[in-house]
Design a protein around this nucleic acid. Structure first.
Length: 584
RNA sequence: GCCCUUGUAGCUCAGUCGGCAGAGCGCGUCCUUGGUAAGGACGAGGUCAUCGGUUCAAUUCCGAUCAAGGGCUCCA
């Protein structure tokens, strides 16, 4: 904790120095804000000329001078009027605006040499304390995050007390670049994007195998947990979307299609389809909990600037399911779903999960009592499972409280994936009913839940988490047989057939190339097992095994290799992404 | 949607201060039959994102559009 505070202060001072450097080089620049952030800091500037990374060396050099001069960072307390006068003289319009928000408070400024900044602090004692810093990027950012306000130029940078930490941070950035799923997607021949369909991936044969393998696992565990899967249409009448409320609240994100008199929307969510299915028949409390799953493809229009590989697309599949149950079943149902979600994450390789409960927002529907009961049920379920969680007050959806699951990847990034949401809105809007033990009609409780969220996005997370070195059970090609020369192609074929006979996805590299070349090629494709076969192996009925994760494993009898690999796949083993050292 | 950057061969990129374009990898054919990350030779492959403007001439300059990248905002 203390260490974290120090790092923040350190970076805050580095931001101060960066602003000082920019002001020296561009005296007419107006200052925005410059806080420390997770891995560094930024500072916003209003500046007529456009900054580019080519300007960074000059700024860094100027920062170096300020640091070398070792200016003390002096704190001064001023009255509001004094502060106002100072900032007016300096022409710092944005700082003045900030100052207006600080009326009746003591104003503090920090001074270092020729530079002053309105700032609460705290700061380091002097600029000379800063040892290692680096400017990273520049981007536009609205003043106060408000798109009505001017766009400032934000320089992102980082700083560390220990130069070695800076070095390893920069190395981690490089590593992240290498693991970029868009690059891996190309190298592994999984998917591509085309101008003709922005934000909509084309999955290649190997990508489809990965996609289907993940979903096959999902279907297996959901079926065991009592879910029943449905499929509903992609185009649905505008009448449905009016009823669901999406027409009023979500239309900007919907693709519409008008045919003759009728208007249809491509579904942006699966729930309304499920509700029509629910209303198809009468329901009794005896059927509850009723768990209806749908791996439904949805389309959502997104602002052009937000698309990002598979992370943010406009066409994707949600692993949705809706649970209809009695109020007294909420807790046990949540417990089940939490178990299911955590077990899926463990299997696919994400043991680190953080959980968050979001409570009632300002504008919302439903009675106080409903919200209290539902929120308590969520908390109780997590308590039963001994899951630690944080609470985000007022961050729930307008229609109900929710639990969100964030998985941590081995680059230490957190991704929100799973969600469990109570919904007080849809059952009302669609007038859902069931017949209770008393013979009367009642309103069921509806729970929305997803584990992966968007399958496409989850694949991106998986690929980057593993750096492409997927566990064998998920790998599109699980083993490749590499004959030393054409003389052992025949034996290689028999090896491949033995693997295929056990359901292992195996290929044979018959190309007229040297073994080193074939190995390199298989590694680029991230195939987990490379089986080299030459005259010696053919003689003894073995293969020379090389694992992408564990390196050279040596000669092993063919039957043993087939058996071991088949077991590894059946067990869905290998979800230890962060242990993988041999990334490249 | 907003700010900035980019768009040249399947990929990574060079280049043209305006005169019908290049490399490496990949791909094809041939030689080579090899032992754990790139053997060799030859060859094919591009409307320089699209549309418009300026010009004797545009891939190059200008504008618009589309897409991509880094951010902001958004993600009921």
């Amino acid at each position: 904790m203390e260490e974290h505070d120090y790092l923040d202060r350190y970076r805050h001072s580095a931001a101060h120095v960066m602003a000082q450097a920019v002001k020296r080089l561009y005296p007419h620049a107006k200052l925005g804000i410059g806080p420390p952030i997770e891995d560094g800091f930024y500072y916003d500037f209003d500046l007529p000329e456009t900054l580019t990374p080519e300007d960074f060396p000059r700024i860094e050099e100027e920062m170096g001078k300020i640091i070398a001069a070792d200016h003390p960072l002096e704190r001064e307390e001023l009255s509001f009027e004094e502060g106002k006068k100072l900032l007016e003289e300096a022409g710092e319009a944005y700082k003045l605006e900030l100052l207006e928000g600080l009326k009746d408070q003591a104003i503090t400024i920090y001074r270092s040499g020729d530079f002053i900044d309105l700032c609460r602090g705290p700061h380091l004692e002097s600029t000379g304390r800063i040892k290692a810093y680096k400017l990273l990027s520049v981007a536009g950012a609205y003043w106060k995050g408000d798109e009505q306000r001017p766009m400032l130029q934000r320089i992102y940078a980082t700083a560390f007390p220990d130069p070695r930490d800076l070095k390893s941070y920069l190395a981690a950035l490089e590593e992240a670049k290498k693991r970029d799923h868009r690059k891996l997607g190309r190298e592994m021949d999984l998917f591509s994007f085309h101008e003709e369909a922005p934000g909509a991936p084309f999955f290649h044969p190997r990508g489809v195998i990965l996609y289907r393998t993940l979903l096959a696992y999902w279907r297996e565990v959901h079926e065991k947990a009592g879910y029943r899967e449905i499929m509903t249409p992609m185009l649905l009448s505008d009448r449905l979307w009016h009823q669901s409320g999406h027409w009023d609240h979500y239309q900007d994100h919907m693709y519409l299609s008008t045919v003759g008199e009728d208007t249809f929307a491509v579904k942006p969510m699966n729930c309304p389809g499920t509700l029509l299915y629910y209303r198809e028949t009468q329901h009794s409390y005896r059927e509850f909990p009723l768990k209806i799953a749908e791996l439904g493809r949805v389309h959502r229009r997104e602002l052009t600037g937000v698309l990002h590989g598979l992370f943010r697309v406009q066409s994707f599949v949600i692993d949705d399911a809706h649970i209809f149950c009695l109020p007294e079943q909420i807790t046990s149902q949540i417990v089940e779903v939490v178990e299911l979600i955590l077990s899926i994450y463990r299997t696919v390789g994400f043991p680190e999960v953080s959980v968050e409960i979001s409570t009632r927002p300002e504008s919302s529907i439903g009675s106080d009592r409903d919200w209290e009961l539902a929120t308590a049920a969520l908390q109780e379920a997590l308590a039963i499972k001994r899951v630690e969680y944080t609470v985000s007050e007022g961050e729930g959806a307008f229609y109900g409280p929710k639990i969100d699951f964030h998985i941590r990847d081995c680059l230490k990034r957190s991704h929100q994936c799973g969600t469990i949401q109570l919904d007080f809105s849809m059952p009302e809007r669609f007038d859902l009913e069931y017949v209770g033990a008393d013979g009367e009609k009642h309103r069921p409780v509806m729970i929305h839940r997803a584990t992966f969220g968007s399958i496409e996005r989850f694949l991106a997370i998986l690929l980057e988490h593993y750096g492409g070195l997927l566990p064998a059970w998920l790998a599109p090609v699980q083993a490749i047989v590499l004959p030393i020369s054409e003389k052992t192609i025949e034996y290689g074929r028999r090896v491949k057939d033995s693997l295929a006979a056990e359901g292992i996805r195996a290929e044979l590299d018959e190309r007229n190339e040297k073994i080193g070349y074939k190995i390199r090629s298989a590694r680029v494709q991230r195939i987990p097992y490379l089986l080299v076969v030459g005259p010696a192996e053919e003689e003894s009925g073995s293969v020379s095994v090389r694992s992408l994760r564990e390196g050279q494993l040596g000669d092993r009898p063919l039957e043993q290799v087939v058996r071991d690999l088949a077991r590894e796949i059946a067990e869905r083993a290998g979800g230890d992404a962060c242990r993988l050292a041999e990334a490249d």
